[in-house]
Design a protein around this nucleic acid. Sequence first.
DNA 1: GCAGGATTTGCAGAACATGCAATAATCGGC
DNA 2: GCCGATTATTGCATGTTCTGCAAATCCTGC
Lengths: 203, 203
Amino acid sequence: MSPSGEGLRERRRRQTRQEIHTATLRLAREHGFDKVTIEMISSEAGVSPRTFFNYFPNKEAAAVFGPQDLSPGPTAEFVAAGPARPGEVLRDLTGLLLRELAGNPPLRRDMHDVFALAHEHPGVLAAMLAQFDAFGETVAATVAERMGRRPGDEVPNLIAAVALTAVRSGLERWSRDEPADSEDSPVPYVERSVNLLHTLLAS
Amino acid sequence: MSPSGEGLRERRRRQTRQEIHTATLRLAREHGFDKVTIEMISSEAGVSPRTFFNYFPNKEAAAVFGPQDLSPGPTAEFVAAGPARPGEVLRDLTGLLLRELAGNPPLRRDMHDVFALAHEHPGVLAAMLAQFDAFGETVAATVAERMGRRPGDEVPNLIAAVALTAVRSGLERWSRDEPADSEDSPVPYVERSVNLLHTLLAS
DNA sequence: GCAGGATTTGCAGAACATGCAATAATCGGC
DNA sequence: GCCGATTATTGCATGTTCTGCAAATCCTGC
């Protein structure tokens, strides 16, 4: 295994995945999502069509491919804060997600494209929601760890799901209100949704 | 137009839709979802394969097709209760959704099948989440009406999304814990999630 | 009944998706 | 550096999905 914690194999794999994804978005922007074929995407990404299907089950999944994990640093901090009342954990979690988003400009650009696509193509929306859901599971696991509960426990599950719902709601509005090329940030929008959520709790 | 409020055309259309849906679930239970072809479904439902695609874009959508609207009576009551603090509206809404579920046994049976399918087939999960999301929009419109806010306003949107998240979380657990053929009700599960949600807000 | 519109259907063809087996690349230990 | 084992890529064959189009059929309202 090479010096870094991750072998060449894994790195290349991650890279190919990313390349297929960005190729999909680029081509969709250029020609319209449903004029784009798997063949075009594969060739743009420099792999065979058959390989495309080793990475994604379909175009929609390739378009919405996003973050699988929270970044380790802030997460460790979050977990270390230890057990607390559910409401507090929720508050900390929304804060964590917000910082995650604030610190990752490429992710935000990607998100804007994906939401824009999702508005016009039901299949993309479905794939995006599935992606959020999957991400929610990993978030729930982190929350469970902090709370000293088993993974799969309903409390962390619900906390994660509610937090992500608020985040998604903010991103949704952001993607609708802001034009594609503006150098805007979704952070204020998401903050707004998150605050609304906490207001909801307090009334 | 015939005596009832709805023409023959509309009724038949709704009926065909329903028939394709139940045929899909039945065949999926019998043969496994991915062994089922559109041709099988169509023939089981008594339509041509081409007609299948007039109703649904794909197998997944046919499998998860569910309620599009809240029932009129309870909804009118909900709306008539008039403006209130967001937290109260949320509470009323979760109550409404719960009663909706409690009063509709066929829907529950359907839900169990759909969730079970979704557990094994990512594409079905994606379609189901999209279905929930779409339903969320109509719920949000109802909430907006009650609160005297424009449709699309972020407050009703978030309230609807959060409520449905809790409901979904309960259904999720129910479908995992209860075997397929038990004559159980998801209501206690959903109640549990809803109560948890309100606890979350209160802490 | 009849004109107008909606629905169903068949057909043709492109694109999607999967299993399988051959080839090529990487890995870890020596 | 080399080698056996593992993993990834690719081409091929094949059945399925999905769409556009035009013909035929069926409701609807008058």
